[in-house]
Amino acid sequence: AAELKASGSRYKVEETLTPEKDVTTYNNFYEFGTGKGDPAANSGGFKPAPWRVKVDGLVGKPREFGLEELLALPLEERTYRMRCVEAWSMVIPWVGFPLASLLDKVEPLGSAKYVAFETVVRPEEMPGQSGYFQPLPWPYREGLRLDEARHPLTILSVGLYGKTLPNQNGAPIRLVVPWKYGFKGIKSIVRISLTDTPPPCTWNLAAPDEYGFYANVNPAVDHPRWSQATENRIGEGGFFGSNRRDTLAFNGYADDVAGLYSDMDLRVNF
């Protein structure tokens, strides 16, 4: 991982950072296996460079971006809470830039309502994408409403802890939407498309009653198999200390984003 220059930002959670060791060894990235330690163990052969991201769909200027061009954008450090749908959480110092600044470059059309994302498919470098047992259909897909995608909190991350992203965290570029469950933060992105219909989302398709399109962090709406009222903060409290804390509405970002959903029933649109 190479050093990244980034400016500070006002988006900085004043909570203890999750140790870098935990951020980089406790991951869900099924392309490298379903165990939490699998991504760190199995992603050594993945090549995050060279890399290109295609941005197309309902835009005035569709084009591809080389990674160098994206790394040359003004990078900011954003310290966000990360709340996994599995009821654990971290506090991570991401390095990245607002997704909106990329979207501006391709000039979205007035008809664009949604943004669709796709992860790379490389069975030869990603063991979870090959072999007899494959947990999900590939490519991994995610999507946001355009106003969510343009929200200043929504970033494309290219690093954490001041360095480029480790492979297991979604190198070289991934989405971070801090008020949504972690699975919305699609990793190793190769394509971003603007659409006028809700894009297909991998977990939503796999189990629609468990993972909604919105997937906003919501302590009041339980996952069918566990409560979302509380969460385990990884790397804190150890075995006996209390590392279980109350989950906050919109993961603590309600002041910034609750307005996006003011006319929606969040129990239905979970």
Partner: peptide, 10 residues
């Protein structure tokens, strides 16, 4: 108990 289980020890 000695903090040697990785990630989510519990």
């Amino acid at each position: 108990a000695t903090g040697r289980l990785p990630g989510n020890a519990v």
